[in-house]
């Protein structure tokens, strides 16, 4: 067992654990923004380190796995940002735990809330 195989195995374990945590976060969080937070961060690091681990195990593949890593690191934040903005414009407002709801939601000044959707934001 060479040193590259040990590093690759450790990266595989870390990556797959974070991918599992990403799925669990998507399942457990209460509203769309928190789901995005858990899903994006965990799956980005998980996918990056798993693909890098395979690149370490099979050294001929390292360049192509680097392309996949760069692409994941670039595209995941962009798609999560687009989804967050789209769902706010659509009228799914964030779940806010504390009492001062007006103060905690600064994006309200750009997209004013309408009365009808105010009730639905508990889902």
């Amino acid at each position: 067992m060479s040193i590259l195989e040990i590093i690759g195995g450790i990266l595989l374990v870390i990556g797959s654990s974070f991918l599992f945590l990403g799925g669990l976060g998507i399942f457990r969080m209460p509203d769309i923004y928190n789901r995005l937070q858990a899903g994006t961060k965990a799956t980005t690091l998980g996918g990056m380190s798993l693909v890098l681990g395979v690149g370490f195990l099979e050294t001929d593949w390292i360049w192509k796995s680097l392309i996949i890593i760069i692409f994941i690191a670039y595209s995941n934040p962009i798609s999560s940002h687009a989804l967050a903005r789209a769902s706010y414009h659509r009228g799914h407002y964030p779940y806010i735990k504390s009492k001062e709801k007006e103060k905690m939601d600064a994006y309200r000044e750009v997209v004013p809330h309408t009365k009808k959707e105010e009730k639905e934001d508990k889902a």
Partner: peptide
């Protein structure tokens, strides 16, 4: 995610 009580206090 792992903590059972979900320690979050979200806002924008």
């Amino acid at each position: 995610v792992i903590t059972p009580s979900l320690p979050i206090n979200p806002g924008i």
